[in-house]
């Protein structure tokens, strides 16, 4: 079996920053494995500005921010990048198996950094009752459709949840001529950044209903509308406060969950509440020599902090390797 000093799983901003920091701290044999055909992770679909204000003191788009790290990765010959490579298994002995077109590979690593990002919570998890027609999408999927493929998911949308992705997608849809009828938030404050509420909703005249929830989705084949209801402080529906909104699209933006199924299957302790790894040390996991960073460690608002903290994980892995671990 092939041996490596360090394997980094996931080539988003977290994986790239961790790999580069480990290299700068002296690790000489690094394999960075990414499922997609390019590095950058979720940043590739975030074409709006607002990235890098802290890190680079510049207002970059997601792809521009990612590109700076792609260049830093490419400039380090100690980091070998394997694209279109999907990790299917991690063992407690730090064996990593991955599929790529043409091969099922296995490597034995002395240290591993998991940087697999997060997934979106779905309609099914809240859950919203009603029918299951086309037109109900996680907001990040809608972002990918529009920004990566040029596909407009609908003409009249209601957005569930006021997280940043939902807010940004409200504006993105409005810019594409989609009528965004409302953003519905069950809590009494928005989950997203204040600047996003102002720039994405207020500037576009999109109503935000706080302490409301979508009680039901209608439509057999395609979404035809939703029922919205006000909720009290215990989040229970207030009778008589229901109203309906006609729409053909419902975007769901109700939070992100760290993707740690590989770590969990390897036997690492996972906090069932956050789905993040439980660990005694910074950016570690309960398996010695296995580290985690970025959105798979915990969900971040800003990529700048992802990069900063992932560099700490890279350094921690380098220190672990320097400590003579096998």
């Amino acid at each position: 079996m092939k041996k490596r000093d360090l394997v980094v799983v996931g080539g988003g901003p977290a994986g790239m920053a961790a790999a580069r920091a480990a290299r700068d701290a002296g690790v000489r044999d690094i394999l960075l494995i990414e499922r997609d055909s390019h590095l950058g992770g979720i940043l590739n679909q975030c074409i709006h500005p607002g990235f890098g204000l802290h890190r680079f003191k510049a207002e970059l788009t997601g792809p521009e921010y990612a590109d700076r790290f792609v260049k830093m990765t490419a400039a380090a010959p100690e980091i070998e990048v394997s694209l279109r490579s999907f990790v299917v298994k991690l063992t407690p002995e730090k064996r990593v198996s991955y599929l790529r077109p043409g091969a099922l590979e296995e490597v034995e690593a002395r240290a591993v950094i998991m940087a697999t990002g997060c997934r979106e919570r779905t309609r099914e998890m809240i859950p919203i009752p009603g029918t299951r027609p086309a037109g109900v999408y996680p907001a990040g999927l809608a972002q990918k459709m529009i920004n990566m493929e040029g596909w407009i998911p609908g003409r009249e949308a209601v957005i569930v949840g006021s997280g940043d992705i939902g807010l940004i997608m409200a504006r993105r849809m409005a810019l594409e001529g989609v009528k965004v009828k409302a953003v519905i938030e069950i809590q009494d404050k928005t989950r997203g950044l204040v600047r996003n509420v102002v720039q994405c909703l207020e500037d576009f005249g999109i109503p935000l209903y706080m302490r409301h929830k979508v009680a039901r989705i209608y439509g057999r084949d395609r979404v035809e509308g939703v029922d919205v209801v006000r909720v009290d402080d215990n989040l229970a529906a207030v009778p008589g406060s229901e109203f309906s909104l006609a729409c053909d699209t419902v975007l769901v933006s109700v939070g992100l969950i760290p993707e740690n199924e590989l770590l969990e299957a390897a036997g690492a302790a996972i906090d069932p509440r956050t789905n993040g790894p439980v660990s005694a040390e910074l950016k570690g996991t309960s398996i010695p020599g296995v580290f985690a960073c970025g959105n798979s460690f915990k969900v971040y608002d800003l990529v700048d902090w992802v990069s900063r903290d992932s560099e700490l994980a890279g350094k921690a892995a380098a220190a672990y390797l320097a400590g003579g671990a096998r």
């Binding site: 086309a134 529009i146 407009i152 998911p153 057999r220 084949d221």
Partner: peptide, 19 residues
């Protein structure tokens, strides 16, 4: 065409327009 892809048949198209 992506416009013709459906979830479960006519009427359940996934997207409405292409840019």
């Amino acid at each position: 065409s992506p416009l013709a892809v459906t979830k479960r048949g006519a009427g359940s198209e996934i997207i409405k327009d292409e840019r």
